[in-house]
Design a protein around this nucleic acid. Structure first.
Lengths: 355, 355
DNA sequence: TGTGGACGTTAAATCGTTTAGCATGGCCTA
DNA sequence: TAGGCCATGCTAAACGATTTAACGTCCACA
């Protein structure tokens, strides 16, 4: 009271509730509630009067209370293993946009690729009783870790990554086909000795992209050589180290596909450090096609995976499962597309640096 | 019951509530509630028994119900104007991390730089009764738009951007000093004709960075020339267009500072398209130092603004204000730091391309 | 044998909604 | 005029937790 409020004149500082409005208008809370939600059960005149009063007094509904009654929060919990990775930013933005269009609000949890933290985080999210969980599980997550969520009866949808055998809806890209696309491109250029950088068995995308690599080789009749596979998480540093190891081989590959663009960037850095140029001395294909891929020097040839598209699809799956929990499990796998830029060329035997 | 549950054996499908546990253990809900929260008012033995039962039956607290009673949700609403912009991803990650460490959960809303959408979004977030709002307001947001939030008694903290005169806590970078730093660097290299790319009056960062530009010029005794200022939102495209306009001037500048790295990237593209190379034919200084800045060709000289640091600071301010709503307003302005890379050089008169 | 505490537990109120079922009154019809 | 039917709005009971005053018990001590 010590200073005039800048908000609506006369708006009370304390909370305006349904009951407050009811008392003030001489109506019951039931009527107020119905009127505010445009129920046909309340007379037009009453409805207008109530809505006007609500606006005037600055009434803000309490969804928590409503949720308690209706067992519907309109919250979707989003459990991501990482958000600094640019590909997940795109995903997050698309998911948020799609859900907010549908009247849902996003409650965010980040596991930082740590199963224990993920368990804690998902547990906390669950306490808010979201209508659905949308998760990109951390590496090493087991089926039981996710099943625990579902036992509460909440819809669960996996995005990008999946836990095989969990039996939940899934939206992501067709990684096997995607990486095979990259390999096919290299084969077409004449490469026979093709490495794989990044990706590892602890996550589904790692396994699928690796399978795509093998499938690509098989399709071209090229024997698989485990020495050319450099496992690791898809990070810049890992990509860099992997490329160093590839170049140090007795018989280095002339090209490589990558688990994702981030590891491709690391590989590009290492090539540069070794005095080599991708697209002239070595061929490199990334994966995902994030914004940064086109600005690299040379611009990265990569596989576009339609992240925003499958993000929206994942949101859609969640909405559909909320509406009908009994529906059959659905999987959406977007077909990726090769984007030719300038980081590949015909094979050139890698000449070791004098140093 | 048609199939065995993978969760804890015997875990009921329906919801386990405090009351359920109470009935089962022959205790009152009061005792259960106290026991679960390790209250000293309940005997050790009882506490253990209750906690064990809760674990066994898969009890998950209902925070919505608790919040109704306690008027504390442990939710912090995060209202960002954008999340695809990489600098905001870093911010989001830092804020989420800091808040989750403090036991708060993030409810996300994105305004997409649209005041009307922001109003809708913040309104929705408010219905969940967050303990605090953390906002980076959309362009053109007015004081009243934010005041409406505060009138509900919820803590409001601004991050990155601020609405002057709103009287809320703020954490961000000292943009005036930051851009002045960039200008000083160019001046030191010998530049006298320095342009400014991006930034506009609709947001505080735009105004402050512009002020920094003018302050930098003034400190060097260089007259301000409005023809060298290219206003616009800080996007790649805008930066590109701005650089094109600068180059088309009768007397183009030999250098420019930018509103942010994104517009600097656009400017770099335009330079390249014009057959020029930054760091040899033209000098360019970015702002923010996002991950991508160091991989550009040439690597971008820019001003590092410590985004994660002020993100954590913002989270801290929110926590402090929740704890003590009456405390005096606090502002945190991180001092930025110049990062020298390779996009600047001594002045070279811009020679128009023959085309 | 009272008295007084300490201790553990509980009853009951409360938070702000929603909703099923019921009451009221007016109007139409038979 | 009675009966039935609508339209409208109300009553009251949830929803699942937290909180606090009050209530036994039990024990120690004077």
């Amino acid at each position: 009271m010590d200073e005039t409020l800048p908000a609506q004149a006369g708006a009370p500082i304390g909370k305006v509730t349904l009951q407050g409005l009811a008392r003030e208008l001489g109506l019951s809370t039931a009527t107020i509630s119905l009127a505010l939600r445009d129920s046909p059960m309340v007379a037009e005149a009453t409805r207008l009067k109530v809505q006007e009063a609500a606006r005037a007094r600055g009434y803000v509904a309490n969804r928590g209370a409503a949720a308690l009654r209706t067992a519907r929060t309109n919250i979707v919990a989003l459990g991501l293993h990482d958000i600094v990775n640019p590909s997940f930013t795109e995903l997050l933005a698309a998911v948020e946009d799609a859900l907010s269009d549908a009247g849902k609000t996003v409650l965010l949890g980040v596991s930082q690729e740590d199963v224990e933290r993920q368990t804690r985080t998902l547990g906390t999210l669950a306490e808010y009783r979201p209508d659905a969980f949308l998760v990109s599980p951390a590496a090493h997550t087991r089926v039981e870790d996710l099943k625990a969520l579902a036992s509460t009866g909440i819809a669960v949808v996996q995005v990008t990554r999946e836990i095989e055998g969990s039996g939940f809806d899934f939206a992501g890209s067709d990684d096997v086909a995607g990486v095979a696309l990259g390999v096919a491109h290299l084969v077409e250029l004449g490469h026979r000795r093709i490495g794989m950088i990044g990706g590892y068995g602890a996550i589904s995308t790692g396994r699928k992209r690796f399978a795509g690599y093998k499938a690509g080789l098989a399709a071209a009749g090229i024997a698989f050589d485990p020495a050319l596979v450099m496992e690791g998480p898809g990070l810049r540093d890992e990509g860099r180290k992997a490329m160093a190891r590839l170049l140090a081989l007795d018989e280095p590959p002339t090209a490589a596909v990558c688990f994702n663009d981030l590891s491709a960037f690391g590989a590009l850095m290492e090539l540069q450090a070794a005095g080599l140029t991708a697209g002239r001395d070595f061929s490199l294909v990334g994966y995902d096609d994030i914004e940064e891929a086109k600005v690299w020097h040379p611009p990265l040839t990569t596989v576009h995976t339609f992240i925003p598209e499958y993000g929206r699809a994942a949101a859609g799956l969640a909405l559909k499962r909320i509406a009908d929990p009994g529906r059959p499990v659905e999987r959406v796998e977007m077909a990726p597309k090769l984007v030719l830029r300038a980081s590949t060329c015909a094979p050139v035997p890698v000449k070791r640096r004098p140093s």
